[in-house]
Design a binder for these strands. Structure first.
Ligand code: FES
Ligand code: FES
Lengths: 137, 137
DNA sequence: TTTACATCCAACTAATTCAGTTGGATAACT
DNA sequence: AGTTATCCAACTGAATTAGTTGGATGTAAA
C-alpha cells in the first residue's frame, strides 16, 4: 500500500493554493514545491477537472480554491487522481470476486476500506493549512 | 492503494488453517482457496518465516497456527509479505524526504499511516474464523 | 528400495503500472 | 510579433505484479 505521486503532489499543490493569499500560477507551485512544471500539468488538470480549483480569472491569472478549504477533503483530492478507493477487487462492481459469498477476508477488507475512506473524508484542507493564513480569514 | 495478491492470499490461507480442525496440507489450501499450488509456495513461506504458522510434525503433516488465533493480527499477516506500512516515503528511515521539515502533508500521511496500522493490528484471525470452529475451542 | 508425494527454493516472464518527459496546440497579455 | 501560461496527447524507461517453470530435497507409503 502506497500513496502514488499524483495524489502526493496533488495534496501538496492544493495546500500551496490554499495557503496563498493571492491566486497562484502553476509555475509558482512548481517552483515552491520542486515539482517539474510539465508533470504538474496533469496534477493541476486533475484538481481542476474534479472541481477543486479554478482559474481565478482566465489564463495567467493563477489558481484559487473552487470552494472553502473546510469543504475540501483529502479524500476528494485522492479521488481527483484515482477511482473510488477499493483495496481489493472482491467488492468491486465491475470485477466482483467469484468467491464472494460469505468470505471473511472480503468482509474484513471492505470494513477496512470504509474506515480508510472515513479517515480521508474527515480531514479537510483547512486543517492542513498554515496558521498564519487561517488567522486572516 | 491496493492490497496485493500475497497479502490477500496470505490472509485467506491463514484463515483456512485457523478454521481447520486438523493440520492442513498446502495442497488442500490450494484446492479449497483455488490458488495455484506453486504460487501458494511463496505465500506459505511468508507465513512460516514470519512465525505465524508451523508444520505440525515435519513434512507431510500439514500446517497449524504457530500461536492462538486471537494472538495473530491482520497486520502481522500484512508484514509477512511487505515491509512495515509506509504510505509515503517522506517519513521512511532509509529514504527520508528532503522537504521533510514542517510539511503538513507529511504529517497527515503519517497520521493516516498510524491509524491504518492500528486498524490492521486490532483485528485478529480469531475474529475472522467461522463460528462453528470457535464453539469447539 | 523404489516411487510418489510434499515441501522448499531460485530464476524467469508477460503484463501492467508508475513517474515522469517530449512536443506541440491554443490563448492571452505586452 | 513575441513571450508567457495553460492545455493536452503521446511516448518512454523503470519498477512492480502476479504469477510460471523447473528442479532440489526430504519423507513416507508401496
Ligand atoms: S471474496 Fe474475493 S477472495 Fe473472498
Ligand atoms: S515531507 Fe515529503 S513532501 Fe513533505
Amino acid at each position: 500500500m502506497k500513496i502514488n505521486s499524483n495524489i502526493r503532489y496533488g495534496l501538496r499543490a492544493i495546500i500551496e493554493i490554499a495557503n496563498s493569499p493571492k491566486p497562484v500560477l502553476q509555475r509558482e507551485i512548481a517552483e515552491r514545491q520542486e515539482i517539474s512544471l510539465n508533470y504538474l500539468d496533469s496534477i493541476i488538470a486533475g484538481l481542476k477537472n474534479s472541481g477543486l480549483i479554478v482559474n481565478s480569472g482566465g489564463k495567467g491569472s493563477g489558481y484559487i480554491l473552487a470552494k472553502k478549504a473546510k469543504d475540501i477533503t483529502v479524500y476528494q483530492v485522492y479521488c481527483a487522481f484515482s477511482p473510488d478507493l477499493q483495496l481489493v477487487n472482491c467488492f468491486c462492481d465491475t470485477n466482483e470476486c467469484q468467491r464472494s459469498n460469505n468470505c471473511p477476508s472480503k468482509d474484513y477488507w471492505f470494513e477496512l476500506n470504509s474506515k480508510i475512506k472515513e479517515l480521508m473524508s474527515s480531514k479537510t484542507i483547512k486543517e492542513l493549512m498554515n496558521n498564519d493564513i487561517l488567522i486572516n480569514q
